[in-house]
Simulated scan of single mutants.
Amino acid sequence: MTTVVVVALVAVATGIVIVVTDPFGGRTKNTSTESTASTGLAQVTKGTLSARTQENGTLGYGGDYQVVNKASGTVTRLPNVGDVVGQGKALYLVDGKPVILLQGGVPAYRDLDWGTEGADVRQLNATLVALGYATKDEIAPGSDYFGRQTYNALKELQDDVGLGETGRLPLGQAVFVPAKEIRITKVTAVRGGSAAPGAAVLQASSTQRQVAVLLNASQQSDVKVGDKVTISLPTGRTTPGVVSSVGKVATKRDSKTTVDVYVTPSKPEETGQLDQAPVLVSIISETVEDVLSVPVNALLAMAGGGYAVEVVEAAGAHRLIPVTTGLFDTSVGKVEVTGDGLTAGQNIVVPAS
């Protein structure tokens, strides 16, 4: 009695299933003549494959800072949306006097003068050194004491921005934000209006390019900080990036539950100046090197379970080689495979395109 082996050809990329019967059991056969499906040839290749997660993202700038005014008087000058202001420069004017932008995570909340100590003094000292008004020998890194060198350095800064050289920093003369320079995104104060202490004046971001991705919460474990990324820009070009942050708190948005993932472009100059631009992000979550691979649609699902590929020998004979699958690279439509007798360069049968 003749044994019939049924082999299903699974075209994973297209969802097509083709059934091939082998009335000759384990004998070498020419499947191209027995199958009613049109076929072609591909090759077993050796190289690098990557597992990728493709997501929609939004290209913009990192950071979201709200500047709160502490001065009293009338707002006489404001920056424009899109302006970039660096630390040590006038951010806006109250009664014609500059309010200086300084770097630091502690908001201004008191006058700073000779003899004061604390985290706010530490960030003032660090900024004065960073701006070149004092050296590290003059103000030790991490110093939280307002001494003679702080006094002298602050007088130089005040002179450069057009303020009276008092050597003290009264509340309202400066605002601290945790960035060396900021990009204005929204102005809430009105020129000529009252500069009420405690009122928001403007909002800003950093000048660092960033892509925000709303990742499905179920995929959080597939992505980690440091994963390499390919960003597809609205211009049609691509540029590399790296995952810089993966959220740990899930948020329900519409019908999806997502976590925030942030990507830092490796070549920010290639991203242009578009803000809030839609991009496609391909996150490389795993990479294997020096492995054999075949097109995904070359896989044959065997009747007893598992997969095989149909190899075409140099003389034209066809034979099935059982394979074990590994990593799938959806970006190139290939899958990692291992199997006895499988080598790079062999011709294999695939559905005709």
Rank of each mutant, 00 (worst) to 15 (best):
Gly96Ser: 04
Asp120Arg: 00
Val296Pro: 06
Gln220Phe: 09
Gln123Met: 08
Asn216Met: 09
Pro234Gly: 07
Gly272Met: 00
Val6Ala: 02
Thr33Asp: 00
Gly305Trp: 04
Thr324Val: 13
Val335His: 03
Lys256Asp: 15
Gly226Pro: 04
Arg122Cys: 03
Asn152Thr: 12
Glu289Lys: 10
Thr251Cys: 05
Val246Leu: 08
Ser244Thr: 08
Ala277Ser: 12
Ala195Arg: 04
Pro265Gly: 10
Asn297Lys: 03
Lys267Ala: 15
Thr287His: 09
Arg183Ala: 06
Leu93Glu: 15
Val161Ser: 03
Glu156His: 05
Pro268Met: 02
Val106Lys: 15
Asn125Arg: 05
Arg77Ile: 01
Val312Asp: 07
Gly247Met: 10
Pro265Trp: 09
Gly345Asn: 06
Pro141Thr: 07
Leu292Gln: 12
Ala303Asp: 12
Ile16Phe: 06
Val309Arg: 00
Lys89Trp: 08
Thr45Asp: 03
Leu292Trp: 01
Leu300Thr: 08
Ile182Tyr: 11
Gln208Trp: 05
Leu154Ile: 05
Gly339Leu: 13
Val67Cys: 04
Val288Ala: 05
Arg209Cys: 07
Ala119Lys: 09
Leu171Trp: 01
Gly326Pro: 03
Glu289Ser: 13
Gly57Val: 03
Arg122Ile: 03
Thr230Ala: 12
Gln219Cys: 09
Arg237Gln: 15
Arg319Tyr: 12
Thr238Asp: 10
Thr330Asp: 14
Val20Tyr: 07
Ala134Tyr: 02
Val75Thr: 13
Leu299Phe: 02
Thr343Asp: 14
Ala37Trp: 01
Pro178Val: 06
Val5Lys: 06
Leu215Gly: 11
Thr14Val: 01
Arg209Asn: 07
Thr238Ile: 07
Val211Ser: 06
Glu55Val: 14
Ile139Pro: 08
Gly164Gln: 14
Gly345Trp: 02
Ala8Gln: 12
Gly15Asn: 01
Ser282Asn: 14
Ala212Lys: 13
Pro98Asp: 05
Lys136Tyr: 13
Asp222Ala: 15
Pro322Ile: 10
Ile348Val: 13
Thr3Met: 11
Gly193Arg: 10
Asp64Val: 12
Arg27Cys: 05
Ala212Phe: 10
Phe328Lys: 11
Ser293Phe: 01
Ser205Ala: 15
Met302His: 09
Val161Thr: 00
Gly162Ala: 10
Thr330Ala: 13
Gly118Phe: 00
Gln103Asp: 00
Val129Trp: 02
Asp160Trp: 00
Tyr262Ala: 15
Thr39Val: 12
Gly339Gln: 11
Thr324Asp: 15
Gln208Gly: 06
Val350Ile: 15
Gly73Lys: 01
Thr257Leu: 08
Val99Trp: 04
Asn80Leu: 00
Lys180Val: 05
Gly272Ser: 00
Lys136Thr: 14
Ala90Asn: 06
Val20Ala: 13
Thr36Trp: 05
Val12Leu: 15
Asp254Trp: 11
Gln346Leu: 08
Val94Pro: 02
Glu289Pro: 01
Ala37Ile: 03
Ser143Tyr: 03
Val4His: 11
Asp111Lys: 01
Val323Gly: 09
Pro295Gln: 06
Ser205Trp: 08
Thr238Leu: 09
Ala11Val: 10
Asp222Lys: 15
Gly172Asn: 05
Ser221Ala: 13
Asn56Gly: 15
Arg110Ser: 14
Ala315Tyr: 07
Val213Ala: 12
Thr28Met: 14
